[in-house]
C-alpha cells in the first residue's frame, strides 16, 4: 500500500515540475556546459560594461608605447599603434558577440519561418522551397558570404547579413523536419477542427513546439558565426579598422608574427575560448532538451 502511495506522490511531484525546470535540471548536471555558460556570461558582462572594464581607450593610438610586450601596465601588450590589446579584446567581445547573435537571429528567424511554411503546407510549396535551399546549400558558406559581401560591399552590417543569410537553409531544414513531426499530431488537428487560421496554428502551436532543435542549433551556430565573421575580417572584407574586432586584430598582427606573436595570440585565444564555451553550452543544451541524443 505504501509503495502505491509513494508512486502516487512521485507522480504528483513529477507533474509539478515544469518542462523548463526539467531541462534546467538535466543541463545543470553537465559540468562542462555550466563552465561554458559561466564563461559566456562573463563575456556578455565584458561586452556590456566594456567602457568600465577596459583600462584604455581601444582605438586611441599612443606612439610612445608601440609594440610593448605584456607587462603590468598593458597586460596583453600593445600593438603597432600603441593601442592596448587587452582593451581591444574587451571591446572586441562586444563586436564579436553582437555580430554572432545578430547574424544567427537573422538565420533563425528567416530560416525558421520559411521552414515552418515549407513543412506545414507541404506539396508544391515545400518542393519549391526545398529546391531553392538545395541551391543555397550547394555553395560553401564562406563563398556565399564572400559573394554577398562582394555584392553589398564590406562593413559590419553587410557582414552580419552575409553570415545570417548563408545559414538560412540550415534552420529552414531543421524547422521543416520538426514541423513535419508535429503537424500530424492531434492538437494541431484539434486546432484545425476548431477553425483556427493557418497563420495562428503555425505561430501559436507549431513553432513553439518545434523550437528545441532550433535553440540548440542556434547556440552551436553563434560560435561558427563568430568564426565566420572573424574570418571575413581577417581576409579584409569584414569589419574595417580601427573598430576592435578579434579577426581584424589577428590580421593586423600577422606581419609582426615573428617577433610580436602575442599580438595574434590573444585575439585568437579570445575567439577560441568564446567558441569553445558556446560549443560546450550547445552540447549541454542538446543533451538537456533531448536525452535520447546524448552521446
Amino acid at each position: 500500500m505504501s509503495a502505491v502511495n509513494n508512486t502516487a506522490t512521485t507522480r504528483v511531484q513529477y507533474k509539478k515540475r515544469s518542462q523548463t525546470k526539467e531541462i534546467w535540471r538535466r543541463f545543470r548536471k553537465n559540468k562542462s556546459s555550466i563552465i561554458g555558460m559561466i564563461i559566456i556570461a562573463i563575456l556578455i558582462i565584458c561586452a556590456i560594461f566594456a567602457e568600465n572594464i577596459a583600462p584604455y581607450d581601444p582605438v586611441k593610438q599612443d606612439y610612445a608605447h608601440t609594440l610593448e610586450h605584456p607587462s603590468k601596465e598593458h597586460i596583453f601588450g600593445t600593438d603597432e599603434f600603441g593601442r592596448d590589446i587587452f582593451s581591444r579584446i574587451i571591446f572586441g567581445a562586444r563586436t564579436s558577440l553582437s555580430v554572432g547573435l545578430i547574424s544567427v537571429s537573422i538565420s533563425c528567424i528567416v530560416g525558421g519561418v520559411i521552414g515552418a511554411i515549407s513543412g506545414y503546407f507541404g506539396g508544391r510549396i515545400d518542393t519549391f522551397i526545398m529546391r531553392c535551399m538545395d541551391v543555397f546549400l550547394a555553395i560553401p558558406s564562406i563563398l556565399f558570404n564572400i559573394s554577398i559581401i562582394a555584392a553589398l560591399g564590406p562593413g559590419i552590417v553587410n557582414m552580419m547579413i552575409a553570415v545570417g543569410v548563408s545559414n538560412i537553409p540550415r534552420y529552414c531544414r531543421i524547422m521543416r523536419a520538426s514541423v513535419l513531426q508535429i503537424k500530424n499530431q492531434e492538437f494541431i488537428e484539434a486546432a484545425k477542427a476548431g477553425g483556427a487560421l493557418d497563420f495562428f496554428i503555425i505561430t501559436f502551436h507549431v513553432v513553439p513546439n518545434s523550437l528545441a532543435p532550433i535553440i540548440v542549433q542556434a547556440t552551436l551556430n553563434v560560435g561558427s558565426a563568430i568564426i565566420a565573421c572573424a574570418g571575413l575580417s581577417f581576409i579584409g572584407v569584414g569589419i574595417s579598422p580601427p573598430t576592435p574586432e578579434w579577426g581584424a586584430m589577428l590580421s593586423n598582427g600577422r606581419d609582426l608574427l615573428r617577433n610580436y606573436s602575442y599580438i595574434t595570440a590573444f585575439p585568437g585565444l579570445a575567439i577560441m575560448i568564446t567558441v569553445l564555451s558556446l560549443n560546450l553550452m550547445g552540447d549541454g543544451l542538446r543533451d538537456a532538451f533531448d536525452p535520447k541524443l546524448k552521446r
Partner: peptide, 13 residues
C-alpha cells in the same frame, strides 16, 4: 572540441 573551436586562420598562423 578544441580543434572545432579554433578558427583555422589562427591555427594556420
Amino acid at each position: 572540441l578544441i580543434g572545432l573551436s579554433m578558427p583555422n586562420f589562427w591555427q594556420g598562423l
